[in-house]
Amino acid sequence: MMKRLDAYLFFDGNCREAMNFYKDTFGGELNLMTIGESPAKNQFPESMVDTVLHAGLIIGDFTIMASDNCMGGDLPKGKDVSLHLSCESTEEVDLLFDKLSAGGQPLMPPKEEFWGDYFCSVTDKYGFNWMLSFSAQRQ
């Protein structure tokens, strides 16, 4: 069953600043990818090239993941945090996606993403956001 649960934080344009603050506070190794550095850059307006698409601060066995609000729109409190589950297989991702989608709202169906993970996201029937992934390279 699942390998680990991490927090995924969403920021309204200040992800780089916040993640550098957390790095200064907790230490660790910070990796950032902007929209302009990603294969998905053509899917976004030119004005968003410096927007953080994904950040990861690795502190031993603990990881804080984050991004700017790349999808636009409001970012009300409660929608600015997702729970990220690292799963053991693509089958587990599919199973959990189906279960969490029941009565909820599928956001991104499971598929292989450009960064190599099998990934999906869903809001469950209680309004909590979940991100599920399986990474063959981290096995």
Rank of each mutant, 00 (worst) to 15 (best):
A7D: 10
V81A: 14
L53W: 06
D74Q: 12
E46V: 15
T123K: 12
L100K: 10
L32C: 00
V81Y: 09
D24G: 04
F21A: 05
V52Q: 10
Q105M: 11
E92L: 09
P76Q: 10
R4N: 13
S86G: 07
T51G: 03
I64M: 14
R138V: 01
D24R: 07
W130E: 11
G60C: 14
P45C: 03
L53Q: 02
M48G: 01
T63Y: 10
R16T: 01
N14T: 03
L5I: 05
S89P: 09
F26I: 08
M65R: 01
L85W: 04
N69M: 04
D74Y: 13
D124S: 10
A136L: 12
V81S: 07
M33K: 07
W115K: 00
R16E: 11
G60R: 11
C87L: 15
N31H: 07
F128S: 06
D12Y: 10
S47A: 04
N42Y: 14
D94F: 08
D6M: 12
Q139V: 02
A7I: 00
I35M: 09
D98G: 03
T90H: 05
V81N: 07
S135K: 15
D61L: 04
M65S: 10
Y118C: 03
S67E: 13
M65H: 00
G127C: 15
